[in-house]
Design a binder for these strands. Structure first.
Lengths: 302, 302
DNA sequence: AATAATTATTCCATATATGGAAATATCTAT
DNA sequence: ATAGATATTTCCATATATGGAATAATTATT
């Protein structure tokens, strides 16, 4: 079986520090671990690498030769790790994103913040629009879109699936009672995202059965943060994406209404014209989203 | 914290095999382990190295660069490991040892056998002598000696500490009874190692008190294996090194006599003229003894 | 020569990693 | 369009590794 590379690295450090104790201190690894790991390495290799008394250390002949190879190997690997860190720091340019309204604050901004923490030399422009942008005309690198992609000339990489939640503040529900069926909703004070002129359709599913209800909001705005603030204040019931209201739900500032009736899940995707000719920054951001979006949106609640 | 080098090696193998499953099969590592380790590596580095669906794998830009460094580093380390194996195979020449009588069969021969298994091209000459050899005159590379080194111009590297045990066969002890005090021993049939003309002195210790008893063997020979065979046959009581009789004790063929009275421990050392100018083979054998003598003599019983 | 300090090894209660199985997702064949 | 095959991810009962403390040994100091 191949030797434990971590043990080999410890061996190299012990040699370089001329002492188990010094290597242990320097690396922040317990001395018992260093001792055991190096002993196990020798056993695995079938060779004594170090001759040691409690106060002295000497490389054996084979140990010296093995150390030389391993030292060079580790230098290469450590250079690669350093390169990763430096590459992340050196990447610069501008990233132009189009994002739908409502998600910027709680999702996109944290994501972009984290991305810029990793790549400080990148500037980002975010266009919050409900339109499906024209990538060339609008000079957009990458769009974040909710729902299915209808334009087959574009590429969509799904990032996260989530659902919306019907929520209300405890104070509101105490006063007005909680609805038991979607048809009760029009009798409540609704706070909605859209609905500039018309009523808003809510499609709720329970045990495979869907019920669509039209509600007219007493307040409508296309900003989920604003909607959440108002809902927490007890002004009504609202439909809010779980990734935005999850923390309020956890903390009890909001309560899920009619939990048996659920909105269908939806997908947020990164959309771009083609995988070919994608600039480095765009590709990096896309990869970054894939890697980090779960951590940055812990309230998916599918 | 620094990345897990074993995880990095798995990443390199996944890239080279273009598949988690292929790398898992090739390395004999469970696929769940490979998957987790590579994911953890990415998390530790803060970088996505691979973009993957269940059927396709693609290195990210940073992943490609990192892979190149790691691949070179691993090649270096693997060359070092191979070098160790080859070095062990390529070493040739003759090793001349001087060993005291009594230990050759059960200890030195297994040790030398194991050494020659590791270094097949080395020939070994063993001089069994009770004399303190002259390294130059007798052309001895290394001597194995029991007890303290009296010649300060030589170097002694202790290999193992052990003690002698007073033993008898159950059939003998049933018939003649077990002695309860060292002074009882002259009344028993003793089988001794030395004592060509004179009685043999046995120095036994109990609770820090030493008692010296002189016994005349009914049989004397300077071969512990022979002594053990005769003792097992029920012909008497003998003093035998633990590293020789330990297996017989474990198996019940011999029983320790007066276990509260113990011989002082002694040391077997590798003795050689100087650390400087020690040939490679001698140094290798010495290192080999240090590494392996414990495993080859499990009945130290200090 | 005796004692104190320091270093490495070993033990075992506890923490963490593992790997088989289940779940999930994608691609291929029909 | 659907079913089957294949690949990766995730879960959790179990196996193994860890690290603090004790032990052993060597070297330095008094």
């Amino acid at each position: 079986m191949s030797p434990d590379l971590n043990a080999m690295a410890l061996f190299v450090k012990v040699v370089e520090h001329k002492s188990f104790t010094a290597a242990s201190r320097r690396l922040g690894v317990p001395i018992s671990t260093v001792s055991r790991k190096v002993s196990e390495l020798e056993k695995t290799l079938g060779v004594r690498l170090l001759e040691r008394s409690t106060r002295h250390l000497r490389l054996t002949e084979l140990g010296q030769a093995y150390y030389a190879y391993c030292h060079r190997g580790l230098e290469e690997i450590e250079t690669g790790t350093l390169m990763l860190n430096e590459r992340q720091a050196e990447i610069s340019g501008t990233l132009r994103l189009s994002v739908p309204p409502g998600l910027a604050d709680r999702l996109i901004v944290p994501l972009v913040s984290a991305f810029q923490a990793a790549y400080p030399a990148v500037t980002v422009r975010i266009l919050i629009t409900e339109r499906n942008v024209d990538f060339i005309q609008d000079a957009v690198d990458l769009a974040l879109r909710v729902g299915e992609l209808k334009d087959s000339s574009l590429v969509a990489r799904p990032l996260i699936r989530y659902r919306h939640v019907l929520v209300g503040a405890p104070v509101y529900l105490d006063r007005f009672g909680a609805p038991g069926h979607p048809r009760d909703l029009p009798g409540h004070r609704m706070i909605t995202f859209g609905g500039w002129f018309d009523a808003v359709s809510l499609k709720l599913i329970n045990n495979g059965r869907m019920h669509t209800v039209h509600v007219e909001g007493v307040l409508a705005l296309n900003d989920y943060t604003g909607i959440q603030n108002v809902t927490e204040a007890g002004q009504g019931i609202a439909e809010i994406p779980s990734i935005i209201c999850g923390e309020a739900l956890r903390d009890g500032r909001l309560v899920e209404v009619m939990p048996a009736w659920r909105f269908p899940s939806t997908t947020l995707s990164a959309v771009y014209p083609s995988n070919r000719n994608l600039s480095r920054i765009v590709r990096l951001f896309k990869d970054f989203c894939i890697e980090h979006i779960d951590a940055l949106s812990p309230f998916v609640d599918i």
